[in-house]
Design a protein around this nucleic acid. Structure first.
Lengths: 161, 161
DNA sequence: CTGCGTGCAAAAACTTTGCAACAAT
DNA sequence: ATTGTTGCAAAGTTTTTGCACGCAG
């Protein structure tokens, strides 16, 4: 992988990413390429939920010749390997988020301004597990999103302009 | 509204829908039209999560001259008025689900066979509200999806073919 | 009458894909 | 060498929009 260092990842996490990816690609005869490595590097340095277009923008700073198509293909790869989660927040765009490097969390989304707040709640997680067990499910992942108005937008709606 | 009667809705619920919609449209100078009424009728008779294309198909049985564009516009209206929820299950299609007529529920989705199980859990709902309050959010809707393997698929994976 | 709504077709937005050149093993 | 990968552009999907006509209030 490239030489840039992430601010948000520990060396151990970087290592886990590389290991998982190597194994995933090895198992199905996929090859490691310059472009893939760059995209993966860049993506895990970013912190948040990013569209392909956004990742592409950042990738092109390092290598302007990489095409969007390759970013699409690579992000799909990351999602399939479990290293990233694909999310849909309701604008018509898939956003990707690292599945490693921070604890599991859920999202509060403001439907007016688009702000996304992350939160964790162990109690909810436990209840989710309980529900799954009750239905005989073996849960591998989940997502939970609360939609509404953030505080500033509540005010804006009450006292227009 | 048209004369067809829903199997899954009580008269009281039908009434609530009509009232909510009338108010929503009245407040912003929107008009009630033949097409809108038909689409709303048809949608609330259906039970499940439907794409615009699917609703359109059903609408055209009653009136083949209604355009997709109108269905898109009407479903958006229903979502904005709170009568329907827009969902994204990861295929690139928005699906709509009635927000009235059954209690709120969430989804357990089997990633192997695609089975969707619905469940409710009041305790989780309460915790969600608490989280939102803590962040100053005024929540209007939420969704929660648990992904994993249903019981039959767990067995299938353990003892292949 | 005065807009809002509708259908149609064109366009937009996002994503996937075919193909010839290219690179990794 | 062999096979997977890339960039490009074309094509696919899903959703939105401009416009002239029609209909509701």
């Amino acid at each position: 992988m490239g030489g840039s260092v992430s601010v948000t990842m520990t060396p151990a996490q970087r290592n886990e990413i590389e290991k998982t990816l190597d194994r995933y690609m090895g198992e199905r005869g996929l090859k490691s390429t310059r472009q893939r490595s760059l995209i993966v590097d860049v993506f895990f340095e970013m912190d948040g939920h990013f569209s392909v277009e956004e990742v592409w923008g950042r990738v092109r700073q390092d290598n302007p010749r990489v095409s969007v198509a390759t970013v699409y293909r690579t992000m799909k790869l990351l999602a399939e390997s479990g290293l990233a989660h694909a999310r849909n927040f309701g604008d018509g765009q898939t956003r990707y988020e690292a599945a490693i490097g921070k604890d599991h969390h859920d999202h509060l989304i403001c439907t007016r301004c688009g702000t996304i707040i992350e939160f964790e709640n162990d109690q909810i997680e436990r209840l989710q597990d309980a529900v799954a067990r009750k239905h005989g499910f073996q849960v591998t992942s989940h997502k939970m999103e609360l939609y509404g108005l953030c505080r500033p937008c509540q005010r804006a709606v009450e006292q227009p302009a």
